[in-house]
Amino acid sequence: MLCQECQTRQAALHFTKIINGKKAEMHLCDECARNKGEQIPGSNSYSIHELLSGLLNVEQVSGNNGFKTQETEEPKQPVCRGCGLTYERFAKTGRFGCAQCYQAFETKLDPILKRVHSGNYRHSGKIPKRTGGNIKVQREMEQLREDLRSRVEQEEFEEAARLRDYIRELEKKMHSGEEDA
């Protein structure tokens, strides 16, 4: 299909526009679309970071009723002690400055991460072997306790008892490990 604007190039963009209830079919080539200022849905005219900073800014704008008070007032926004990055700069660039930024902006992160990761905000993947030793055992314990609860609920008492003993054993091991260290 040819572009309805220039009638020379192949149309690459097909969409239906609805303005004030009126429907209009559009078939444009890339160039005419750009000239007409049509935003191509899903196209990369925006980088992921620009999109992301859009998400990050929503909260800021709505937080102060859209008034520009940032420059005149003493900034109340969080600042990372590790690298000096302000939340504002983070929101603008979509990048953290260092590992400590995650702590500095902690209170604001859950909604952002949920938006980016389909509702998830908590890591449940790999844990570093050398430095994450305790976290690993703790997470394993959590998982075991969860299993135990569901076994009890389902009245699978034999299996539940086995799990309980295993958890006790692990707890004992953990405590003796702490004493050694």
Partner: peptide, 12 residues
């Protein structure tokens, strides 16, 4: 690495 957030990266 952070227990809650996992491996920390420059981009969220």
């Amino acid at each position: 690495f952070d227990e809650k957030r996992g491996y920390l990266t420059s981009c969220p």
